[in-house]
Design a protein around this nucleic acid. Sequence first.
DNA 1: AAAATACCTATCCGAAAGTATAGGTAAACT
DNA 2: AGTTTACCTATACTTTCGGATAGGTATTTT
Lengths: 221, 221
Amino acid sequence: MNLTDREIKIILVDDHKLVTQAYASMLNDVPGFIVTGQAYNGKEALILIENSPPDVVILDADMPVMTGAEALKIIHEKYPHIKVIILTMHKEMVYVSNFLINGAHAFLSKNCEMEELIKAIRTVIKEGYYFSSTVSKAIVSSTIKDSDFGEDYRQLRLTERETEVLKLICEDKTAEDIAVQLNISVSTIKFFKKNIYQKTNTNTVAGLVKYAIKNGLTYVD
Amino acid sequence: MNLTDREIKIILVDDHKLVTQAYASMLNDVPGFIVTGQAYNGKEALILIENSPPDVVILDADMPVMTGAEALKIIHEKYPHIKVIILTMHKEMVYVSNFLINGAHAFLSKNCEMEELIKAIRTVIKEGYYFSSTVSKAIVSSTIKDSDFGEDYRQLRLTERETEVLKLICEDKTAEDIAVQLNISVSTIKFFKKNIYQKTNTNTVAGLVKYAIKNGLTYVD
DNA sequence: AAAATACCTATCCGAAAGTATAGGTAAACT
DNA sequence: AGTTTACCTATACTTTCGGATAGGTATTTT
């Protein structure tokens, strides 16, 4: 039996129950689709997937406990045949790239029409990938790996340590707090911060926090 | 004919199309409910309401163009008989209060169950208000006006000028930028900032930005 | 009309953050 | 093996920020 002949099994992951349930209601009304599970964070999602593997996982990018990015990475590594569609409310390029690198099969804005999500689900099953016109043209090339995004992209990527520092900044820590926690000098923190400012193209903490939110590094309850 | 005997007309407002459409799909499946309109920001919502007044408006608190708070205020002033249910992904007390003052009839987290939203819709129609157990006990008193929230609350409220400054801080402006824009000295900005820090119970810009997001003062695209 | 309150404005000073510069290590490239 | 590149660490110097304090105006209370 061909995959396109039977119902497509979908698992929904969004930290807002109401939204997840609404998606389920919407997608279950579509012939050929069946929502086999709903999870409210990445960890729950992994358990669901383990117990009853779906064809498609629809994953919210912005989640607190385990972020969409983290969940995606694990899903992609453990179950490479499962298609993952990322839903997000943001629309920054760096952000999109990070998900593509980690194996997303589609990337959709929450601003899209219901029809586009439905189309995306069918397309990732049939063709492996789906990208909306806005996203696709700019980014997608043959193989999805870091260098495909070019020099500019690499320059923009935050190093592990930088990411760590940025996260802590967003958690209300002062430079000194961070220095203590990381066991390095305050001056070092400043150096990281400077680089982060450059890469994120900001010069205020406010900009940093917004960048972090957009990139799923931190979350506002 | 009694209001409870006919279909309850609902207008949905959420800046994410996909979410709005999902809500619509979910609520239209409920007997006695009919979604008569969907808007993607406050302005659109007001036009919809003008053209075909609903019984209930379900309003997302976090929207960019016209925030939920602003839209609520106008709706409540122009159409006091229309019930407004606020949906939010945040759960801070100050935040809730602001909406209650401006005439919200219910306040729900996006983490709630579908059943609770349905219950809330029925309850605001029948009894005028609905508050989930977590929210209600702490806050609601007989009349909803500023002083009902007590001294503490008043202390926490940001003044107009403070709010203005906070918004600009979140827009990546430095203290000097703000001073120039507002035609006052940098020192004055600092004074405002100090008060904002006190009232929001933070001491970093990161905390400020998060507070602003929670309170709908700024928005992360 | 006097007093109280809320809000906006401002200055001074010590503390923290940003800027410029540079050394060191480990991995990748040629 | 030697060079380049990426990343982490650090210091000295300058600017900006935050805390304490205080004066002024407009509105409300009594």
